[in-house]
Design a protein around this nucleic acid. Structure first.
Lengths: 250, 250
DNA sequence: GATACGGTCTGGTACGTACCAGTCGAGCAT
DNA sequence: ATGCTCGACTGGTACGTACCAGACCGTATC
């Protein structure tokens, strides 16, 4: 409909990626490039004819974005771009969800997945016996195609025997839960700031010495440590928002 | 509740309350009174015949509980009661408390206390009328004599009329509580990383371009904003540590 | 005994239809 | 001019169908 500068507004095709997921991306674009919070997106019936999908599919896509906090529905009026929520939720829950809430499209670039012997402090943090092997997973996380963070994690092979056969392009926590029944229920996180060295800077496509926000996280599931991860976020592209409450109502 | 003796598990009726919402309640009961996390609930097709609703309705109810973190789906296996979710909560501690807990001795170097007109974004954050005055407080915070952080804060003069007569060498939050009866009970905090400019570096006795951990915090007491503070911590000397616990009551 | 296969569970995706329920403006009735 | 009704939107609920994909297990095969 809109003869934008961009060639195609993104056709919804019948491929491996579900249609509702594709529509989610399209709608994220609409919501982001629109005139900001309060702007209405096309009605559900309009979207079904525009993109040639059923209303159920349209609603599923909108559901996702509503629960991510990007859109708001108003019965009888329409669906609108939501005002950004002031809410806690560090990046811990899900990188993808976090990015979408900010109106960005998340993706992942896999750098390495190897099996080896972790450094002693990692092995100790993961309560591994000396000599035991672990996966080293290295990924660049992107938003709208631009590198945001570099994540380096160690995962005991005894816990995740065939991690190398899995799809590591999405949320790792979701994979742990879905494929292994491992649900992270506790974490210890340390956060500091450092300057990017040459390798890190190159991977993040940033100048050397760019200030980074660094998280080191040790996650446990049912008392068993399963993850030792260090995430380096570009300080110029990433901010953490949090609500601090004295009482626990959140 | 519900003096149920046996099988009567809450009929789904065609009333003002949507069927999927009713099913949500029923499933919550099943999940809660079950044998705890990991327990499977009946399959979707089983639920549709049991309660006489369509699969779409069943899925809608389950969707709600999944996004609430009560249930988890596993493709090909079933739907299970989830373990409580990972949630973040960074509880706010004063600098003095924070340092003492690390076994360090906190101190303060007062740089400036002036009364003036705050920048517009600060005035807006503090819900001040245009032209109203506020205190600008600038301090270097030290641990064992070494500079750790530079704090720049704005405080409405209407709230703290005689701040300039007080002792600002210690914990400001303690002073607010003791002298003014103001207890900070809520805060919105944004955190990022940046490189130290010349002035900041000199005050922190650090090299220029030292990576900093920057917090911008707006604190409120009983709904009234009382503080807009920006704290710059030396990334090489300061780390934030947080525990991510399961906070869900379920 | 180990492996391969196929049936049958599970949830996941996608389509269609129908009708209910708020919102709002145009136009008629007062 | 005011008030009302009605129709045309909007999203909300609920039904049905069909097929795909992952997990599991018993059986047939090597």
């Amino acid at each position: 409909m809109t003869p934008r500068t961009g060639p195609e507004p993104g056709r919804i095709t019948d491929g491996p990626r579900p249609k509702h997921a594709q529509l989610t991306d399209v709608l994220t674009g609409l919501a982001t490039e629109g005139r900001g919070p309060g702007t209405a997106i096309p009605s559900e019936r309009e979207l079904m004819t525009t993109y040639g999908v059923s209303r159920a599919t349209v609603r599923k896509a909108i559901d996702t974005l509503v629960s991510d906090g990007l859109l708001e529905r108003v019965h009888g009026k329409g669906t609108f771009v939501a005002r950004p929520r002031v809410e806690s939720r560090l990046h811990l829950a899900s990188f993808s969800q976090d990015m979408r809430r900010r109106g960005l499209s998340p993706s992942t670039r896999l750098l390495a997945l190897e099996c080896g012997r972790p450094p002693v402090e990692v092995a100790r943090a993961l309560a591994m016996r000396g000599g035991a092997l672990a996966w080293r997973l290295s990924r660049v996380r992107l938003a709208d195609g631009a590198p945001i963070a570099l994540e380096d994690g160690w995962y005991p092979r005894a816990v995740l025997p065939d991690l190398d056969t899995r799809d590591l392009g999405g949320s790792l926590y979701a994979l742990l839960a879905d494929a292994y029944g491992i649900v992270i229920d506790r974490g210890e996180q340390t956060l500091w700031s450092e300057a990017a060295d040459g390798v890190t800077a190159r991977r993040l496509e940033a100048p050397v010495h760019t200030p980074l926000l660094v998280f080191r996280r040790i996650s446990t599931a049912a008392g068993r440590p399963v993850e030792h991860a260090v995430s380096r976020y570009r300080g110029d592209r990433y901010q953490v928002h949090m609500s601090l409450d004295r009482n626990r109502s959140g």
